[in-house]
Amino acid sequence: DVAKAIINLAVYGRAQNRSYERLAHLVDTVGPRLSGSKNLEEAIQLTYQSLKDSGLENVHLEPVKVPHWERGEESAMMVKPRLYKMAILGLGSSIGTPAEGITAEVLVVNSFDELQRRAIEAKGKIVVYNQPYISYATSVKYRVQGAVEAAKVGALASLIRSVASFSIYSPHTGNQKYQDGVTKIPTACITVEDAEMMSRIASHGTTIVVNLKMGAVNYPDTDSFNTVAEITGSRHPEQIVLVSGHLDSWDVGQGAMDDGGGAFISWEALSLIKDLGLRPKRTLRLVLWTAEEQGGVGASQYYQLHKVNISQYSLVMESDAGTYLPTGLQFTGSDKARSIMEEVMSLLRPLNITQVFTKGEGEDINFWIQAGVPGASLLDDLNKYFFFHHSHGDTMTALDPKQMNVAAAVWAVVSYVVADLDEMLPR
């Protein structure tokens, strides 16, 4: 009755709402946790102590060098055709503007193709991207590459429509990348509303002028940590089922959903198993990654350090797409392993969450998956997730404790059973 016992404890028993309450305590105390910030390091130290206090084994911190970027003060003022202050969020790793800002005419485009067609018009201007939201994976390239593509055609700065599935005038930040040999220009996200408005104004042939000020600064890399805790395996302690989420966030809202929820249901999975006095045959290892938002920096360094033991990893799991009511598990692995995962998920029939989808993935576990280790991720309502993603709206209010209970139950059953099977998952 192991699966039933986990479900009962997580959803109906004394552990219900625990992951939500632990997370609320952390994010209400510390706030958002940007890579390189004191907030993140305080959160890591508090979580490390709480993991030790909760009786988990082999609790330790693994050092990582992480990027340190600060946004500083920032603003965008439309000065023509009317005075209008726009909400913006600078993008991670962006350079700042001169103190007086950059004042320039705007060129609005809907795609990179349109930018190429109108390249001659872009020189000396601020490029505004008004790309449609198709999916996160499709649309995010404008956020990541928008500055580079604009700089290639001589733009002074870029303003990018937020990559969001819905907007109530909310700018959404995120990471962006410069390219060697291409001039670095300041870049920020604007709201869906303002991107559409400027597109409409420009379509009438009206000139738009914007003053953009950004106080962003890139500092040298700083010290941080991946946070690790375990339930040591009883028969094959050297073999690992890795359960994870990331502890860092952007510097807006509370980072409660991305990825406080994922990190804390991962912790909850081990807590549930421990509370029930269970000890799987192989080790359940919780890893709370640092600096995921800057491109899986903590996970990359963990992989370099631990890949020598890759043959001992049965399954890597990451929750980084929300902890709303799960629709199932995304899984990447061989057909044989998938068949086993389908059997494991059938244990969750009491919650009516049994589906195994394709494309198990996560920024932090992809290193392992690409090297052949089976990987799983939690799937829920992604549309809702991207309402709040990287915005001031990412707070505890965006989470639901009851849905987190269910997500934690799924996470615990899957991780425990795979860790306790007589054999590792086949590759």
Binding site: S311, K336, I340, E343, L347, V413, D422, E423
Partner: peptide
Amino acid sequence: KAIHKASTPQKTFKEIQEEIAGYT
């Protein structure tokens, strides 16, 4: 090679299926 060494299944799928059913 290292990846596959530790993961050669000894059990049949039927046996694994029965094993997992034991956790219901």
